Computed example of a mutant assay.
Amino acid sequence: MHGKMMMSKVMRALGLMSGTSLDGIDVALLETDGEKVVKRGPALICPYDDEIRQMLIAATAEAKTLQSRSERPGSLAGAERELTDRHVSAVAQFLKKNGIDNATIELIGFHGQTVLHRPEAGLTVQLGLGDVLANATGRPVIYDLRAADVAAGGQGAPLVPVYHRALIEKLPSRPVAIVNIGGVANITWIGRDGDLIAYDTGPGNALLDDWMQRRTGAARDDDGAAAARGTVDENAVRFLLSHPYFAKPPPKSLDRNAFTLDAIAELSTEDGAATLAAFTAQTIAKAREFLPQEPELWIVAGGGRLNRAIMGCLAERVHHAVVPAEAANINGDSLEAEAWAYLAVRSDKGLPITFPGTTGVSKPLTGGVRADPAPARMPS
């Protein structure tokens, strides 16, 4: 179905990522044939304001009652429309800032905002109207990239590993672990022969962000400053690590709200932050229990790489170097947005985006839905 000429065609794609964190929208440009990374372009972060953040927090809480992917009760429908409009705006901002002609963009990969992820129940819900985005931007949009995998019995996450493998193709170290610490933390293990193992290791920044919001009104613990002033409550860490998720072998994936702050409710702000940073680091280090070989290099992307407490705790717990993404010539902020551009191209070409070693699906599988902009109407 997909001929050789099509397979080798390089496309100019935009990736839009909002994911499980509530920070904002990441936009990145990538030129790729869906196999090799030809050229990484500019990127932009469009932070959420308090209005949309609160809207999405309410929508995520409301989504806990969903029984089907298509339901949009209560505030969910309004949040989905507002979120989509914010993405339209983010694309416009990106193009204007970088002097890029919209007509040169061949494809947009649209993640949307995850509000529910329960693959064991066959449910994963990302808010975002692909057809509205396509019509507003005038460009084809690939969206809903997790659904086909979940419908086939996979975890629907993580999806970025195949892009991780393309990015580190020329690195001499093997095996390599790429850890993304967003709302949820996940690991990609890339073996010497390119084999992939990937799964969610546990909470990334989500619990810590929620803690800081509750205690200080701040959206995050910038630079891990609060955690650095605190003392880790080892009993609380042990209690959190007793959750059955950590003993379960991969493939596995996690909902952002799978854990609560109850275990640290009585701690000071600083001690709670330190405890949560240590918990995140410990769950990443525990990933080694399920890997065939110890990684020779740990590359950390996502907002968590900027938290000194998390990075320091992780470095203490593993046996090889732990470095931020930039040390491996990877943009730790735009990595996932780039990945969504890459996955959109793979999806458009019918190439697999999930694999038995990454989501537990029975065989390599493509996915995603394509929305083309409505044709322009001729004036009557």
Rank of each mutant, 00 (worst) to 15 (best):
M1N: 08
H2G: 09
M6A: 12
S8P: 03
M11E: 10
D23C: 10
D23Q: 06
I25F: 01
E31D: 15
T32D: 07
G41M: 05
A43V: 00
D50C: 05
A58M: 08
A63I: 00
R69V: 08
R69M: 07
P73M: 04
A79L: 00
R81P: 01
E82N: 01
H87K: 00
F94M: 02
G99Q: 10
I108L: 13
F110I: 01
Q113R: 09
T114L: 15
V115S: 03
A121V: 10
G122K: 09
G122V: 12
L123G: 05
L127M: 08
L133N: 00
T137I: 11
G138P: 08
Y143H: 14
L145I: 14
R146Q: 05
G156P: 05
A157H: 11
P158I: 09
L159F: 06
L167I: 02
L167K: 02
E169V: 11
L171T: 04
A177H: 05
N180Y: 12
I181P: 12
W189I: 08
I197V: 13
D200G: 13
T201G: 11
G202F: 05
P203N: 14
P203C: 15
N205I: 06
A206W: 05
L207G: 02
L207S: 06
L207E: 13
W211A: 02
W211Y: 13
Q213R: 15
D223K: 15
G224N: 07
G224H: 05
A226Y: 10
V232F: 10
V237K: 05
R238C: 09
R238F: 13
A247F: 04
D255F: 03
N257E: 14
L261Q: 05
A263M: 07
I264A: 03
A265H: 08
L276Y: 02
T283S: 15
I284V: 15
I284Y: 01
A287H: 05
F290V: 10
P292Y: 10
E294I: 14
E294S: 09
P295E: 15
P295C: 15
E296S: 11
W298M: 09
W298F: 14
I299M: 08
G303F: 06
L306P: 00
N307M: 14
I310A: 10
I310P: 06
M311G: 09
L314D: 04
R317A: 14
V323G: 06
A327N: 11
L335K: 15
A337I: 05
A344K: 04
G350E: 06
G350A: 09
L351F: 15
F355Q: 00
F355S: 00
T358E: 00
G360D: 01
V361C: 06
K363I: 03
G367V: 02
P375A: 14
A376P: 00
M378V: 12
P379F: 07
